[in-house]
């Protein structure tokens, strides 16, 4: 069995400030931050990542929280474990799509230790939380040497396993605005094996106008079909301002599949992944619409 066979210095800051100081002490190449480590430890075992300093922030309990307020919306500390997001009653009530996404994220063992912030910062294009958060129009709070800033979740992942984090910055909080009235959100991913990473995933948020007929706003996010999660803006444009029908959703699915830029690997071809996008957008749209009508 593979173990980590190189030595490193282990640093366990007790506060965010301490962590940020440590981050600034070492350059990007020599240090690595570990939260739940569900992906990182595997990469270290495979010698793909070999830091000299490992900064363990898993113990920063200050960053482990779920807060909700009718005005400010939802705030999730970056070190909140997946399982807490999944089981949170307030999330189940106000943002059930997040809880549903978590239910099918890997397995319960991973969700019991892995953190939602770690997942997002790992920036796997197949990661589920980022896709849902983009559909939810979420923002991410980053803390760094020059203080704190926020950015759209949509802009956070820039390429395969690459983020917009600047040297010395840490992802600290996920902020999800309150859903506008008459909004329905749905997420789905497809793979042959339950609980596996998705070959393709789609999250869609549909907001209907007052009469619940016309689509006043829509956000469609795709996962696993580009170097980073993306928004299918052309597909959104097809639905925006229209009365959504099955035919229109099919058209949006077609547009989204053209916006995707999937690759071929041993699991599936790019052609099939596009087909998945086409079908999943249609299916997710039907459910998001039904939810919007019920909302």
């Amino acid at each position: 069995m593979k173990n980590i066979i190189f030595d490193f210095e282990y640093l366990a800051p007790k506060t965010l400030e301490e962590a940020l100081t440590m981050l600034s002490q070492y350059n990007e190449e020599e240090r690595k931050v570990i939260a739940g480590g569900q992906s990182l430890l595997i990469l270290m075992r495979q010698k793909l990542i070999t830091p000299q300093y490992l900064i363990d922030i898993k113990g920063l309990s200050d960053l482990e929280y779920i807060k909700f307020d009718k005005k400010e919306g939802l705030k999730i500390g970056a070190l909140t474990i997946h399982r807490a997001v999944e089981l949170s009653p307030i999330i189940q009530k106000e943002f059930s799509v997040l809880s549903e996404m978590e239910q099918n994220l890997s397995n319960v063992e991973t969700r019991n230790w892995g953190t939602i912030g770690g997942d997002i910062a790992h920036a796997d294009p197949c990661g589920d939380p980022a896709v849902v958060l983009i559909a939810l129009n979420a923002r991410l709070k980053l803390n760094g040497p020059s203080g704190e800033r926020t950015m759209d979740a949509e802009d956070f992942t820039v390429d395969f396993f690459e983020t917009a984090l600047q040297p010395g910055e840490l992802l600290t909080e996920i902020q999800v605005p309150v859903l506008p009235p008459n909004t329905g959100v749905k997420f789905t991913k497809y793979n042959q094996i339950s609980g596996d990473l998705g070959l393709a995933s789609v999250a869609m948020s549909i907001t209907l106008d007052k009469d619940k007929k016309t689509c006043s706003d829509v956000r469609i996010a795709l996962g696993g079909v580009a170097p980073a999660p993306i928004r299918a803006k052309k597909a959104e444009d097809i639905l925006k301002g229209k009365k959504i029908s099955d035919a229109l959703l099919a058209e949006a699915g077609q547009a989204a599949s053209e916006e995707a830029s999937p690759t071929t690997d041993i699991q599936a071809t790019d052609e099939y992944r596009r087909e998945l996008v086409k079908v999943l957008v249609k299916r997710v749209g039907v459910e998001a619409l039904a939810r919007a009508k019920k909302a």
Binding site: I193, S194, G195
Partner: peptide, 14 residues
């Protein structure tokens, strides 16, 4: 595909 991540085996749900 030399790992259980890439070599797909039926799990209990399926």
């Amino acid at each position: 595909n030399p790992s259980f991540a890439d070599y797909k085996i039926i799990r209990t749900r399926d």
